[in-house]
Amino acid sequence: MRNQPIKRFPSDIGQHVDPSRPIIGLRGQLDVNVDMDPHKHPRGQLAYACKGIIRVYTHAGSWVVPPNQAVWVPGNVYHRTVAEVSAELRHLFVDPAFLHRLSDQCSVVEVSPLLQELILRVADFGTDYEPESSASRVCAVILDELQALQPSLLYLPAASDRRLQRIMEAMIAKPNTEEGLRYWAAKVGASERTISRLFIKETGMTFQQWRKRLLLQEAVERIGKGEAVIDVALELGYRSPSAFVAMFRKTLGKPPGQYFSEGR
């Protein structure tokens, strides 16, 4: 069981507004017992996990970020970050003058090999590189790369309806529960039809789709921590490891072994 987390205040780099420096980089380390204080900043932020696994929370939901992927957080969005596995991070903070070129939605994104190298370089530039320098030209390339990012499916939507929140909280606490929609509707004193409609209205997903996304997040987190694929598959209710691997490949484009080996 995880010890009481240590609160940590975030860097203030995201507060620096300066269009002549479109991107500011930062190196970071986040341990499993550290809970980053909820915060927002004018700059958009790309948090890239070189190693480890982080989870980012906003009012809209949560995102699991495995190794060699990143999470994009638009400017002025309150967010909180925790490490599921101690993580080595690189951050890019994008000035508000350039955010119109990028997504206004939080998302986990695939990071190309080129962007990986650029992220590692810009983390060493500091906050006062010259506008016409080679560092500035690297940042211009990064902006182009950021526009081409494709979101992955490691996002779990949240809800504002209290009944739905209670169901989601219970399922997150016990992801391998096999209880269906009828059971959960009865638990919160609503009809099955009402809860079904609420899931679609508030998350854009059916109950079953939301549950599958929860299981996917849980699987990525557990395998990333070193648990065996066969154990994760059976504990999450799959009838066989092959069925689990097929789901994983269909959703994330690669089987678990390849997915995580490319992130190490």
Rank of each mutant, 00 (worst) to 15 (best):
57 Y>V: 05
25 G>H: 04
87 A>P: 06
41 H>R: 09
17 V>R: 13
28 G>H: 07
67 P>C: 08
9 F>H: 06
83 A>P: 02
18 D>R: 11
9 F>L: 10
92 L>H: 00
14 G>W: 08
90 R>F: 04
92 L>P: 00
58 T>C: 14
48 Y>T: 05
68 N>S: 04
72 W>D: 09
43 R>N: 15
29 Q>W: 12
87 A>V: 01
93 F>L: 15
55 R>E: 15
32 V>I: 10
14 G>K: 05
87 A>F: 02
40 K>L: 10
74 P>I: 15
37 D>H: 02
47 A>F: 00
44 G>M: 13
48 Y>Q: 09
19 P>Y: 09
58 T>H: 02
25 G>K: 05
30 L>D: 10
27 R>G: 13
72 W>Y: 13
7 K>P: 01
16 H>E: 12
78 Y>H: 03
11 S>R: 07
64 V>T: 14
18 D>G: 05
61 G>V: 11
37 D>Y: 04
83 A>Q: 06
73 V>Y: 00
80 R>Q: 14
10 P>Q: 01
12 D>F: 00
68 N>T: 08
56 V>I: 11
87 A>Y: 01
24 I>K: 14
52 G>T: 05
60 A>D: 15
83 A>L: 13
13 I>W: 02
74 P>D: 05
64 V>E: 11
16 H>T: 13
35 D>G: 03
77 V>D: 01
79 H>L: 11
18 D>H: 08
79 H>P: 03
63 W>P: 00
39 H>E: 04
27 R>I: 10
12 D>S: 04
7 K>L: 13
30 L>M: 07
46 L>C: 10
7 K>W: 03
7 K>M: 14
57 Y>M: 06
36 M>T: 08
95 D>P: 12
67 P>N: 07
31 D>M: 15
34 V>L: 12
95 D>H: 14
39 H>K: 10
13 I>M: 11
22 P>L: 12
42 P>N: 10
65 V>M: 01
54 I>T: 14
22 P>C: 11
61 G>P: 08
36 M>P: 02
20 S>G: 06
26 L>S: 08
